[in-house]
Design a protein around this nucleic acid. Sequence first.
DNA 1: CTATCATGTCAACATGGTTGACCCAATCCA
DNA 2: TGGATTGGGTCAACCATGTTGACATGATAG
Lengths: 141, 141
Amino acid sequence: MPRADALRLAIEQFYFGYRAFTAPPDRILAQRGLGRVHHRILYFVGRNQPISVKDLLALLDVSKQALNAPLRQLIEMKLIAMGTAEHDGRVRQLSLTASGSKLEAQLSGTQMKQLQAVFEQAGADAEAGWHQVMRALAEKS
Amino acid sequence: MPRADALRLAIEQFYFGYRAFTAPPDRILAQRGLGRVHHRILYFVGRNQPISVKDLLALLDVSKQALNAPLRQLIEMKLIAMGTAEHDGRVRQLSLTASGSKLEAQLSGTQMKQLQAVFEQAGADAEAGWHQVMRALAEKS
DNA sequence: CTATCATGTCAACATGGTTGACCCAATCCA
DNA sequence: TGGATTGGGTCAACCATGTTGACATGATAG
């Protein structure tokens, strides 16, 4: 197979792979009337607990106006708690509540299961290669 | 590293990797007032030339109303040509025009370059592994 | 005391998607 | 032949997600 064809195939696999990867959590979220944004917020808050609004914005790479509505929604649903930092009364500390953790675990859980299944099927070498490629890709941005 | 942490890391890498992957074509498209939809249309028409509207819809997995506007736009811009099938007067045959091919090549080209760079850096084994994982993932959908 | 910072909020807008309803023309089939 | 199905197109209402610009407020830094 010519090099160009292999690369074209890679584009396609990337597209379909990502689509398959994001579908299951989307379905769970839809049942609660939430969207992919909410998932990203829950995820990043969970992994960077506690995190300031500013830092969260930088991670998500969206405007504060875009973050505001869904974040407020998550706070009202008691999935995320918002406190104030001790060292600086301006910055907010976002963290997951118990039920927020639970939902986040459920969402990420389906993706982890999915990845576990394909990694197992593909083998440890393939898994290591996948990681290498993804890391290199993310770093170039 | 515990298994769960490795899988969580994979989720994150997938997200950032995909984001980095889609950013360059998005920038090119934005200059022409086009979006990611247009790219997907150009790509799938290019790879399945000639393709019927119905088949394109199935590939993109969107409603026909969602496809209509951007497709019409691409036809008006003479990037895509629409003919009628000989064997069945109902079905349309979509294909890329010369300038459509050129744009598509430019868009996919940036992605291919990007992939080529990371594959080269990561090595042939990593590349093969990446493909294996992505294929397995896409098949499960 | 003033400037800067972190955050919040309002408004206007663009894009990309949905469902539902309805239309036409071509083809299939009984 | 005539009715049902199929491929395609279009209108309308709606929703989610994002943008930029402008402005407000309270806390901190110099």
